[in-house]
Design a protein around this nucleic acid. Structure first.
Lengths: 210, 210
DNA sequence: CTTCCAGATGAACAAGCGTTTACAATAGTG
DNA sequence: CACTATTGTAAACGCTTGTTCATCTGGAAG
């Protein structure tokens, strides 16, 4: 099943990754321990040996994804040497996700299900994203390319929700647009519209950004 | 379980409604036939008598929701006597949903899971919504309060995605905003931001719409 | 070489699942 | 009334599920 040449991941990691992949496509309840075992090329017993129970594995996958996501956010927020002067410089979540994750990564789809299902992890992650969005908006305001509109929390939430919508509705948008909105071409096409509206409303034409 | 006074729904309808309610909160795979039977106050056998199988019930619930949704859309699109002159008149999907559905309706949550899970129903519904969004945008353009930005399909998809985001992220937004975005107060607060940005971009202040 | 322990497995188990079957009650209808 | 669907149920069936248990393998340590 795996590449027969070399496999540097431990089987514990393989199990986690395969479980993540399966949890992203179907719901976790619809994935059996035997499914994960078959996909990982191990026996069902080994899964329980490493993670205690199916729910333990579920939790481990969740933590792993959240950790990955936070790492991605930190390293994208860190280089603040050149503060974003313009809306154009505002790196959307979707863009960051697409840039930092390999093509075909199960993480966006997993994230969509996580945000729908709720739970403590989803709440914490979303709150963090909202705080980040609010900080980004504050930067824009300081640069003079946005205002808080009297309700910075709501405006930041609006921007965040619009951003997450691309991730959550990815497959649906792919169907009607004819291209994956998280692909390079898709992000460009989508970004043009987003920037135009954010810069001047629905009466604005997409500027000829790169 | 039900109101002991009168119950005008047939038990077949009760089963469908209770299944919808349960499918909206947890995933369908995590809901057992016995759960639905208990919630409906009937025996598990009756469910299979009426719907053939659990999957048959799932399909029936799906069709029911889609039908309800389309009826709602038609009656909201029909009265076109007073064409929308302004962005302010553009009735958002979220607004329509909130106005036409009783408080606590499981339909928004069900819809969110439907759009994530995909399948033929979801694809058809989303395509229809996209067409509707494109038509609404065309109306705005004709009224002179919007332009298509060179890519009407993408712009309509952007507006649609933003609208659906409120429905899909409802609970998460509730947590960070402190209010249900699909409540009357929540829709007002959200709508102010949406309209302001759509009218003039991120530099716009919410107009004092009623 | 022996000891040992983590990694891994196949077989089996109890519980819960969707479903089937046989049967009871009810409500029209001639 | 008798007849016949319709509506409903209880009990059981077979299968799948998550999980346990005894066992095996292959190195590393002494």
């Amino acid at each position: 099943m795996r590449s027969p040449y070399i496999e540097d991941r431990t089987s514990k990691a393989i199990i986690r990754d395969e479980a993540l992949r399966l949890f992203a496509t179907r719901n976790a309840d619809a994935v059996t321990v035997r499914d994960i075992a078959a996909a990982s090329g191990v026996s069902p017993s080994l899964i329980l040996r490493h993670y205690g129970s199916k729910d333990g594995l579920r939790a481990a996958v969740g933590e792993h994804v959240v950790r990955l996501f936070q790492t991605m956010l930190e390293q994208a927020t860190a280089p603040e040497g050149t503060a974003p002067l313009d809306v154009q410089a505002l790196p959307s979540l979707a863009t960051q996700v697409a840039r930092n994750l390999p093509t075909g990564s199960p993480i966006p789809a997993y994230l969509a299900r996580l945000l729908i299902d709720g739970g403590p992890e989803a709440r914490a992650l979303f709150a963090q994203l909202h705080a980040l969005s609010q900080a980004g908006l504050a930067d824009l305001i300081e640069a003079g390319s946005a205002i808080d509109g009297g309700d910075p929390s709501a405006r930041a939430a609006f921007l965040l929700a619009n951003d997450l919508a691309v991730i959550m509705l990815r497959d649906r948008l792919h169907e009607v647009l004819g291209m994956d909105p998280l692909s390079v071409a898709g992000l460009h096409r989508w970004g043009r519209q987003v920037l135009a509206v954010y810069q001047g409303g629905l009466l604005a034409t997409p500027s000829d950004q790169r």
